[in-house]
């Protein structure tokens, strides 16, 4: 085992035996299966995130402008605007305007009607404009998302999932090891070190998503609620205000969609069936 990790990073052989042998998966072949809690959470989370994202776009459509700071409205400058001018749709970021007719601002619905809406009907829940319904979906799935994440984190800390699969080993923080895994990824080589479920780049992505981006979605979401804001001032204050929290909520939502697309793409190019089985049925015995 030491030899093989040394092959990954010949400069640091002394740091190699980090993984406790009792929690490491068998060395012979990486095990792509996941424990039940991870599998349940993964799919609950997928459904919740898609429902939250699409209903979130509906909510955004009610006021398609984003601001920094505590407040922002039609009389204040916005850093992002999706709108329409005449029959054209546009996206404006930081004062730079691009024509997005057909996609943002103005789009053609199923009946061939041109409609003025920030995000088109095919991207929103519901597809017709209804802020009220978008909110009902959003706040329903938010419970599954928030408590799902909470339970997953608690279980994963208790059952050693984080320690054994996602936690970075000391040697993996070495710049050369990080650079190696970046180069490997660029070459579509996604191998993991023996005894490891993920390589350092994968681990860092999962850490960023599970421990930074998903919790930030919850905190920025809470920061926008006047009721929660009265009870707990910190969520909106830590971002410098409700409108900043709304902007960050929007940015991370799109980042998560980016992560999801990349994640699916990587699963497809790298052992799609094994990965899918590992995340559904679990163990292959």
């Amino acid at each position: 085992m030491t030899d093989m990790i040394a092959a990954l990073d010949p400069a640091e052989p002394a740091l190699a035996p980090q993984a406790a042998p009792d929690i490491a998966p068998p060395v012979s072949e990486p095990d792509h299966s996941h424990v039940l809690t991870t599998r349940i959470w993964h799919w609950v989370n997928l459904v919740s995130l898609i429902a939250l994202f699409m209903s979130g776009l509906m909510i955004f459509n009610a006021h398609p402008r984003l601001y920094w700071g505590e407040y922002g409205n039609r009389d204040e400058p916005a850093w992002l605007v999706i709108g329409q001018q005449g029959s054209r749709g546009f996206l404006e970021i930081g004062g730079q305007r691009i024509d997005t007719t057909g996609l943002l601002g103005r789009y053609e619905d199923g009946e061939g009607q041109m409609r003025s809406r920030a995000f088109p009907g095919w991207a929103t829940i519901p597809s017709d404009y209804s802020l009220a319904d978008g909110r009902h979906w959003h706040f329903f799935f938010a419970w599954f998302f928030a408590f799902g994440l909470l339970f997953f984190m608690a279980f994963s800390l208790l059952n050693g999932h984080i320690r054994s699969m996602i936690a970075m080993r000391a040697a993996e923080w070495h710049p050369r090891a990080l650079w190696r895994t970046i180069v490997d990824h660029a070459r579509f080589d996604f191998h993991t070190a023996p005894g490891e479920a993920y390589n350092p780049l994968q681990k860092l992505s999962y850490i960023a998503v599970i421990f930074v981006m998903l919790p930030l979605m919850i905190i920025t979401g809470l920061a926008m609620s006047p009721g929660t804001d009265a009870a707990l001032h910190f969520p909106s204050m830590m971002f410098g205000g409700r409108q900043t929290a709304r902007s960050i909520h929007f940015i991370i939502a799109w980042s998560l969609i980016g992560f999801m697309l990349l994640h699916v793409a990587l699963v497809i190019v790298h052992k799609p069936l094994t990965s899918l089985r590992g995340m559904t049925i679990g163990h292959r015995r």
């Binding site: 909510i59 955004f60 009610a62 006021h63 402008r65 505590e70 407040y71 922002g72 409205n73 039609r74 802020l131 909110r135 926008m224 006047p226 409700r242 409108q243 709304r246």
Partner: peptide, 12 residues
């Protein structure tokens, strides 16, 4: 105080 509209904007 801050007035928060259901649409998403705020005004103080």
């Amino acid at each position: 105080t801050r007035h928060d509209c259901v649409e998403g904007w705020s005004a103080i």
